[in-house]
């Protein structure tokens, strides 16, 4: 099977002021696959995720060197438009963060800022994306209700619909289910499985079962270093590195 690379990272280092948080990371992630980042907290997996759509730019004193190549462009080269990048690489956060607007307006927000004004077109996008995020049936009768009136799991799926509406190629998910109950978590995982057909997904999780369930590839991070990266099956059954084995078998973490 020939896999197409969607993101290629070469020799990436990241510093918070003087402190180095990510250490010479090189990794290739593939189209229409789910890649999971695992590792103990503070290992740099979330920081690395935020490297991929430059959300780290918002934090003072962060410096990055190395290359992150998406569609033949280094996203850290000076002529790249961060705004365009973030439309292409969407993000779902740990804590669901709908805007204090209606459900409809939440989903329509992305298309609107891209200049779509036609009401029919917007209606169409909102419906299709809510359907894609598997929440349409639950909200179709009250699209004008505040996004914040939904339950935690629904809010997270609304955020996913909102991200889908900007037509991204890659979706980054930062522990998207860590604040949710088991049933909502199952729904999100199911959704990830569905979305993989059209999008490439990279998910950070502290839950190893989740990584094993949803991902095709798994990267194990420890102390800012990428320890091992392979097919998920291999990582969980027959890891090459001792540290990975210790972690996935629960000996530390």
């Amino acid at each position: 099977m020939i896999r197409e690379t969607v993101i290629k990272v070469e020799n990436l280092n990241l510093y918070y002021g003087k402190k180095q948080a990510l250490n010479n990371i090189s990794i290739e992630m593939y189209k229409h696959n789910v890649t999971a980042f695992i590792g103990p907290s503070g290992c740099g997996k979330s920081t690395f995720l935020r490297v991929l759509n430059r959300m780290n730019d918002l934090i003072d004193g962060v410096k990055v060197d190395g290359k992150v190549i998406i569609e033949n462009n280094d996203i850290y080269s000076p002529d790249i438009d961060v705004v365009e990048l973030r439309k292409k690489v969407g993000m779902i956060f740990q804590k669901s963060n709908p805007f204090p607007k209606s459900i409809y307006e939440n989903v329509a927000y992305g298309p609107r800022i891209m200049g779509i004004k036609d009401k029919n077109k917007l209606d169409e996008i909102v419906e299709s994306k809510l359907k894609q995020a598997a929440i349409w049936d639950e909200v179709k009768d009250d699209l004008q209700k505040s996004g914040l009136s939904l339950s935690g799991g629904q809010q997270q799926r609304l955020c996913i619909a909102r991200t889908l509406a900007t037509e991204p190629e890659v979706i980054l998910m930062d522990e998207p289910a860590s604040a949710l109950d088991p049933i909502s978590t199952a729904k999100i995982e199911e959704l990830i499985h569905e979305l993989k057909r059209e999008y490439s997904i990279i998910i950070v999780t502290h839950n190893m079962q989740q990584a094993a369930r949803v991902s095709d590839f798994t990267a194990f991070f420890y102390l800012g270093t990428l320890i091992e990266y392979d097919k998920t099956k291999k990582i969980f059954t027959n890891p090459t590195v001792k540290q990975t084995e210790d972690y996935v078998t629960g000996r530390f973490g």
């Binding site: 959300m55 705004v83 973030r86 969407g90 709908p98 805007f99 909102r162 991200t163 900007t166």
Partner: peptide
């Protein structure tokens, strides 16, 4: 909330 908007490419 503002992060969500920025992440959508606003």
């Amino acid at each position: 909330i503002s992060e969500a908007s920025l992440a959508l490419g606003a």
